[in-house]
């Protein structure tokens, strides 16, 4: 894959290290001379020094037809114009950019950037999911938060413990995708027995997550 990495200091460094040597062609551009020098030195690769939103810089760096274009600069507008140029003038297939202002996530997407990442927004979501769920539940969001994967530990007193999946009428809005029972991972079917201490992972939409958690955590009455 041909990957273009623009701007950023530590973020660029990390991405270069992740993709270097995996048969990817990396093109690195940085508008700060010090950052460009630093990246060249620690990663032993050529780094173009220049304003990566300018047409002639992108031309010199031969970004045309790249598979992925990543803009990691500090100014949101610089990243936006870089992605726009890459897409419109150089036929780059996919653009990813980071933004400082979380409000820009939806706007940049609407204006044609394929993927927009805001660390502040991610932090906020993470705080939200940590705060709304108990400690023993972990959740991962997929596909821009349209799907969540939730992991939950079964306790002895839960109604569904010691029962087969086909007998518990699990809500139709979610699906049990796997059960982790040390040291095995079980891909469940209807006759799988749920036992205490199992780690149960299910997928659902965020809207239905709470309902399913409530279902699983129902306590047996006796």
């Amino acid at each position: 894959m041909k990957i273009v990495i623009c701007g950023g200091n530590h973020a660029a460094d990390f991405i270069i290290k992740t993709f270097k040597g995996h048969q990817h062609q990396l093109i690195v551009i940085n508008s700060s001379r010090e950052a460009a020098r630093y990246l060249t030195k620690v990663n032993q690769i050529p780094v173009f020094h220049g304003d990566y939103w300018r047409k002639y810089v992108l031309e010199d760096a031969h970004v045309e037809g790249a598979d992925i274009f990543v803009a990691l600069g500090y100014k949101d507008c610089d990243n936006f114009v870089a992605c726009l140029s890459a897409k419109k003038l150089f036929g780059v297939k996919k653009c990813i950019c980071i933004v400082n202002n979380p409000k820009n996530v939806d706007i940049f997407r609407e204006l044609g950037v394929d993927s927009v990442i805001s660390s502040t927004q991610m932090l906020a979501y993470s705080i939200l999911s940590e705060a709304s769920l108990e400690n023993l539940i972990k959740a991962v969001s997929l596909e821009d938060d349209k799907i969540v994967m939730t992991e939950i530990i079964i306790k002895e007193n839960y109604e569904i413990a010691h029962k087969k999946i086909m007998d518990i009428s699990f809500p139709k809005t979610g699906n049990i995708s796997c059960i982790y029972r040390q040291p095995n991972v079980i891909i469940p079917n209807g006759s799988t027995l749920i036992l205490p201490k199992d780690k149960l992972a299910f997928v659902s939409t965020p809207q239905n997550q709470k309902e399913i958690i409530n279902f699983i955590q129902r306590v047996r009455k006796n």
């Binding site: 939103w53 100014k75 949101d76 507008c77 610089d78 936006f80 114009v81 726009l84 204006l111």
Partner: peptide, 8 residues
């Protein structure tokens, strides 16, 4: 870049 963004 700001001008282009606002125009868009």
């Amino acid at each position: 870049n700001v001008n282009l963004f606002v125009a868009y």
